[in-house]
Structures are given as C-alpha cells and as structure tokens.
Design a protein around this nucleic acid. Structure first.
Lengths: 214, 214
DNA sequence: GGGCTTGTTGTGCAAGTGTATAAATAGCCT
DNA sequence: AGGCTATTTATACACTTGCACAACAAGCCC
C-alpha cells in the first residue's frame, strides 16, 4: 500500500503555463502570503517540488505570473481597437466601452492588479512590468486620440495630445477601479456611458444626439 | 547577566496608535507577507507578545490599520476644501490640485492602498472600510460640483450630478495612481493642470484665460 | 514605601514555509 | 522490449510564523 501517485509528463510549455495560471488563481484568492508553493501546486494538479523544476524559486514564478497578467490585460484592451469600417470616434467609444465592461471589469483581475502593484515599490521587476504595460496602453490611447482629432479637423499639438492621453487613461483607469470594486453600484452600461461622455468632453467633441445603431 | 529589557508603560491609546503606525510602515515596506508580528513589534519598539495584549490577532491589527489609513486619506482630501473667500470653482481647482501633489501623492500610501485593496475581495471588513472611504470622498466631490454648477447658473439635475461626481472621482483617482507610480514622468504641477482641465471639461466650464493670483 | 494591578517581556510550541535532494517512473529512442 | 533520460514524486530540513502563557516589573493607590 501507500502507492506512489500516478502522473503524466506534460510538455514543458504547457506545465509552465499551468503553473503560472495556478499561481495567479492562488494569489487572487489567498493573497501573496496565502499563495504558497503547496497551494499553487495543488491547484495545478502537481506536487510542490515540481515548481522548482520549472522556476528558480517562488519569487521568479510570481514575477512571470505578473508579466503574463499584464500582457493579457493590455492584449484584451488593444483587441477592442481592431474595428474596420468605423470612424475614429466610434473606435474610441468602443475602446472605452470595452474597458468598462466584462471581461476587463473583473474582480479577480483587479485583486491581482492591486496585489502585485502594492509590491511594485519594493520589487523593481514588478515595477518595470507595470511601467511597460501602462505606457503601451497610453500610447494606444494617444494613437486613437490623434486619429479622432484629425478626423474632427482639430490640429493635435504633441504636448496637448500627451495631456489628453494621460487624462483619458486616468478616466478609464479610475472608472475601471470603481467598476471592479463596486460593480453593483452601477447599472449595466452606466460606467461606459459616463466614460464616453467624460472622454468626449476632455477632447472638446460636441455630443452626438443619438447612437446611430438601433 | 542577561538582564531583562527595560520598558515604559505607555498609555493605551498611544500604544495602539504606535502599533498601528508600525504595522502600516511594515506593510508598505515588506508587504502583507513580510509584515510579521515580530517586524511590527520591532518597529514599534516593543516585543511581539505585546501585540496580542492590544489586538485579538494579527488580522484585526491590520484591519484597524487599514481603517486608520483610509480615515487619514479622506481627512487630508477634505482638508483641501476648507477655503474661505473662494469661489466654488476655485475651491474645486484647489481640491484637485491638493489631491495631485504631495503629501497625497505618495508612493508609500499608494503601496498600502493597493496592498490592502488587493485583499478586499476576500476580506469583507477591508471591502467595507474602502467602500465607506470611497463614498465619503465621492459625496464630497458631488457637493463641490453642485456648488460650482449653481454658481455657474447651470441647473444640476441629480442624476447628472451623480455622473459628474463619478467621473471626476475617476479622473482624480486615475491621475493619483499615475502620479504615485510614475511621478518622475511628470513635471511638477503637470498632473494638477491636467486634472483641472479634465474636470472643467467634464463640467462644461469655459476655460479661464489666466490664474488671477500672481 | 509597600502592595496590586496590569502592561510588558521572554520563552516555548505546533503548524507551515521555501528549498534541497533522493527515489521512482513515464515515455521516447533504438 | 528494454534501457535512458528527465519529469515528477516524496521526504527531509532549517527556519519562520502566529499564538499561548508564565514570569516580571512599572507605576498608581493608599
């Protein structure tokens, strides 16, 4: 009796991915302190020792996990921008809407985001991962804003453009946080509506009377 | 030899305050996992056992610490609103400026904010503490916005007022985060300038040509 | 100043932590 | 089929953690 546990050999990439996913789940649920190697391994369906076969240590696993999270977040956000046959203004509105609804508004993702950022001061690796994600997002915003202003026959001065991007990024971030933390305080679509109005006001666009669709 | 350590008996309120302060420092520096009873006690200048004399356990200490942090943050923000002989619009601008400069822009406070908020999903006590602070802040914003709109001869509809408050709160929060995380990317006063312009655009106020002072 | 209360220290402990390493076995190669 | 290799398990270990508790002494009261 006391038979040794059966196991399957997974491909290296697959195992790493599973371990990272299990690490993110554990951190979201139990926090950085509760996300122990044993907890993570249990969720990944392996034993704790295996983790050290793929990662030098716990810290490196968590760093890679955070990088994966940031990558996924920015990727999702950018995906909302690929729209053909849409005016720049429509794309901007769709971008804001996408960022203020599921799946980007998500309590688990928010927990992860906050938990890791809380360590950014002390861990330069986390700080850099965040910085890159943030700048990528902001540049994306700036590009769309430039298109919108050009389409509206407004001349975009570079410094002004930067300020617009910073402000709009702040609006989206701020509303995203409120939505993640207190989603039930807002009716469906309310945050997106607030966000679009705020963004258009920031850019000095005259409000449209009615949404063309419907 | 091996003499027992000398100590002073502090008043109960003072000790509790010191322990809470030490807990916040420890969390900011080492995170929730690194903020051990021994670390906290060391920073407070006492031994670990004493903590259990003032708090039922570590968790309760940290909850009280977070409540204290939230209280301090909202208190500082509200303090920026007490200005006599100022127009509502000036008060609003001063409010935005105060929230986007030191001491409210502060990397340590941000670390604490993020660290605790990351646990809000799993810990209802933390969630409630945040909710109260957030709503207090937003109501403060809403009150000032109402004054501004009245002074500007605009009729504030309650629903519109709420949306303005939500948006402005998001603007301030978003810029606050950017300032805390990447303060060196912005020139002094830049965030405040961006914030004031964004807020005034949200409210549909015509920009002022020059600041009256100076 | 001598007791009494209680704030404070110091030690101990069981549970849990990350890491190291030996033993086992799954699955490929020939 | 049978060996080889590297993935995976399992165990051990030194250390830290939160918490419990007994000893102690600071400072008030009379």
């Amino acid at each position: 009796m006391n038979a040794r546990r059966k196991f399957r050999r997974e491909g290296e990439e697959r195992r790493r991915q599973d371990l990272i996913e299990a690490a993110l789940d554990s951190v979201a649920q139990y926090g950085l302190q509760g996300a122990t190697l044993r907890t993570i391994a249990l969720r990944a369906g392996v034993t704790a020792g295996l983790i050290r076969h793929y990662f030098p240590g716990k810290e490196e696993l968590l760093q890679e996990a955070y990088a994966a999270l940031v990558g996924r977040m920015t990727e999702q956000a950018k995906a909302a921008l690929v729209m053909e046959d849409a005016t720049p203004r429509q794309r901007l509105a769709a971008f804001v809407t996408a960022n203020l609804n599921a799946p980007i508004i998500d309590t688990q993702v928010f927990s992860l985001w906050a938990t890791f950022l809380g360590r950014a001061n002390a861990d330069p690796t986390l700080a850099r991962a965040h910085r890159e994600g943030y700048l990528g997002f902001r540049n994306e915003v700036e590009a769309v804003v430039a298109e919108v202003l050009v389409a509206e026959r407004l001349k975009p001065d570079p410094s002004e453009l930067r300020h617009h991007a910073i402000a709009i990024n702040a609006i989206i971030d701020g509303l995203w946080i409120e939505g993640c933390l207190a989603g039930e305080m807002f009716s469906p679509g309310e945050l997106a509506a607030i966000g679009i109005k705020a963004v258009e006001a920031e850019l000095g666009l005259a409000p449209l009377k009615h949404d063309p669709e419907k």
